[in-house]
């Protein structure tokens, strides 16, 4: 895996007229994980989209080395296609071997089921298979535990741990506790705009 790096300097995010957060800085080296904590609407997802390069920060700079994989509430899998084909589409783009992680994630029995019939948790597991297959060193996980059962939660925590142990970086935005040793916690309310008197 290539040497990954992710650092933010003095980031600020604005949505409409509202300044969500400002003066946010951190640096992540290979193997490190960051948990973004905060209440709903504080800007966790916005921060992740900025880190992914999908949105521009209102202020500040972002330095990123290595490819990024994003997991959010949208699995980006074709609703009417069987799960195997929907995953195979991303596999062909990412150049991976098909069906490597479906058994691990417990969705190998669903290969012929169209994605629209899958439950929230099953979709999340499928999205995780897509995420792993992308083999990107930087993982951005937006509410990765939503809709998952206890077994899957443990599995996702273990996968993230393995990812970091292999030199990957993970940024996790979750309102549920995410057990990961040695992770740093970034409380977004410390950077909320009214806290710093803007």
């Amino acid at each position: 895996m290539q040497e990954a790096q992710l650092s933010a300097d003095n980031l600020a995010c604005r949505k409409g007229d509202r300044l969500l957060f400002a003066r946010l800085s951190f640096a992540l080296r290979p193997g490190e994980a960051l948990q973004v904590a905060g209440t709903n609407g504080i800007g966790k997802s916005s921060l992740l989209r900025i880190l992914a390069g999908l949105a521009r920060p209102f202020e500040g700079t972002l330095e990123r080395t290595g490819a990024v994989a994003l997991l959010d509430e949208r699995p980006a899998l074709d609703e009417h296609r069987p799960l195997r084909q929907a995953l195979a589409f991303w596999c062909r783009i990412d150049g991976c071997a098909p069906d490597t992680h479906t058994a691990l994630l417990g969705i190998d029995g669903l290969a012929e089921v169209p994605v629209r019939y899958l439950s929230t948790g099953q979709r999340k597991r499928a999205a995780f298979a897509r995420l792993i297959d992308q083999k990107a060193p930087i993982w951005l996980l937006d509410e990765p535990l939503n809709g998952l059962d206890a077994d899957a939660v443990e599995l996702v925590e273990e996968l993230t741990r393995d990812h970091c142990a292999n030199g990957g970086i993970a940024v996790i935005a979750s309102h549920q506790p995410f057990r990961l040793d040695g992770t740093r916690v970034l409380a977004l309310k410390d950077f909320a705009a009214d806290e710093i008197g803007e």
Partner: peptide, 14 residues
């Protein structure tokens, strides 16, 4: 757009 395909393509540099 709704299902996030364009975001995933953008992340892959497409």
């Amino acid at each position: 757009v709704e299902q996030g395909f364009f975001d995933q393509w953008a992340l892959r540099g497409i």
